[in-house]
Computed example of a mutant assay.
Amino acid sequence: MKEILIASFDMEVGGVERSMISMLDNFDYSRSHIDLMLYSHTGDLIDLLPDKANLLEESNAYKTFRIPIGQVLKSGKVILGLTRLMAKYKANKSKVSEPGYRQMQFMWKYALPFLPRLEKKYDAAISYLWPHYVVAEKVEAETKIAWIHTDFSTVETDINMDLNMWCKFNYIVAVSGACKNAFIKKYPSLKERVIVIENIASPDIVKALSDEKVENPMTADPRFKLITVARLSHAKGIDNAVSALKLLKDRGYDDIVWYVVGYGGDQEMLGKLIATNDLQDSFILLGKQTNPYTYLKEADLYIQPSRYEGKAVTVGEAQILGKPVLITNYPTARSQVNDGVDGMICDLSADGIADGIETLYSDKALRDRLAANCSNINFHNSKELEKLYELI
């Protein structure tokens, strides 16, 4: 039996975390024993992890990366706190538009000498979330596999620093063909290591959870209901969504309401933007929800207003529930939706989103056709795991 390690950050509510749960749920445990290393045993999804995966004991050192720097220093982990401060300083000095990616790179690089190694040797070690320094440097394994969930053409990373890390992996798994191509364009020397394994869907679980009874304001709302499930961040484009709804209101569409399930660093900014546009009653932030499917089920239309994606898990989940979907034309969009068949792709702008919504709002036959096409797709793709078994 193969000994496999899977490492990730935590189990906060998010698409990557849900995709890992689906993978673990569908894994063939008759051929492998899985140890799961979470750097922090936190998050609302942790109870959904299957019992067959062995959750390793939490490490106090690794846990510090989701704790505020001041708290880390007060707890006595002074060196780790100082490496975080140095990473923040170095990233801000790099003068890139989104220094968060650089900060994460520097954070792990500087902290690595002070983090414990795993004692057990594995047949295969999988790092499920970038940056992958822990599995690259602190784990001994015959085969090392790194997962990429984002479009690397859109993020500003230190390429040389990343290359030193990527070269420690035998294989790099991209969640879509477009995601793979964007990665290879940025790191052409790694082309032979990259393989596509799509996110494992669990249609039966999604459908069952959508029937769960929760207190849901959407149920009694008679308006035309839009929904987005996403982190409240620049990448997900929720600010463009607010602007798009304002445009629709100005065009006279007063019976449209937009619900957003999710949380994140942009919440305060978005609240102010909603108030500035006088949309408090029609752009509603529902916050973090462990089960987004009950909300998806009540919607008339699913919207993904992202600026970039690898392959959005939530779009596939909306399609599983037979919802018409509208996504923005981010670089990997056409690997996610067959435009006009199982969804629509609109221009990546507030105007484009508003135009797309207006088209679908006004054409029920189009919405019904998109939804029917989604209902006819077989989303069961657990055979994708055969690709992973071959790598292992």
Rank of each mutant, 00 (worst) to 15 (best):
L279R: 07
R231T: 12
T294F: 06
D158N: 13
L296V: 07
E358D: 10
H41K: 13
V96T: 11
M23S: 01
P131N: 11
D255W: 09
V325T: 13
A87R: 01
A354H: 10
I195W: 10
M37R: 06
T290M: 08
A241N: 04
L286D: 14
F169C: 07
R193F: 12
D363R: 15
I205Q: 09
A365N: 08
M107N: 07
S362R: 11
Y361R: 10
E137T: 03
M344H: 00
I195R: 14
V214S: 13
M218P: 00
L391N: 03
T42V: 13
Q105E: 14
G316C: 03
E317G: 00
P188V: 15
L385T: 00
P331I: 06
P131A: 13
L5K: 01
K191W: 08
L36K: 02
S233H: 03
K323E: 12
M104H: 05
A141R: 06
N381C: 10
E386W: 00
Q304S: 07
L270K: 02
L245E: 06
G264S: 03
K185D: 15
L247S: 08
T290L: 01
Y122N: 00
A241K: 03
K2A: 11
D158M: 05
D339T: 05
L232I: 09
V341T: 14
S19A: 14
N240E: 08
L82V: 09
Y302T: 05
V134R: 06
S8N: 13
I69S: 01
I21K: 03
L296A: 02
G340W: 12
D162R: 15
D151F: 02
R102N: 07
P292H: 02
E298S: 13
G252D: 13
A220E: 15
P50R: 15
E390H: 14
A354T: 01
D278T: 05
S233V: 15
S306Q: 07
E142P: 01
G237Y: 04
N170I: 00
L321A: 12
D266G: 10
I274S: 08
S153Y: 01
L112C: 11
K52D: 14
K121T: 13
V341E: 15
D51K: 09
D281W: 02
K191P: 13
F27C: 10
E298F: 00
L85M: 12
I184C: 09
P116K: 06
A53R: 03
N164R: 14
V260T: 15
S97G: 04
K63E: 04
E3F: 02
W258H: 15
Y128Q: 10
I46K: 10
A299M: 14
W166H: 09
A318R: 05
G316L: 06
L232H: 03
E142K: 09
I345R: 05
N164V: 00
D300C: 11
R307C: 05
Q267I: 13
Y171M: 11
R193L: 02
R117G: 00
L326G: 12
K109A: 12
T154P: 00
I345G: 08
E17Y: 00
Q289Y: 03
E142L: 05
D204Q: 14
L48V: 02
A178P: 00
D254A: 15
K144V: 11
L348N: 09
I6C: 04
S189V: 12
D355H: 08
Q267S: 08
K185Y: 07
L245I: 12
K90P: 07
L248D: 04
R84S: 14
I256S: 00
R66V: 06
L232C: 08
F379I: 04
N164C: 03
I357F: 08
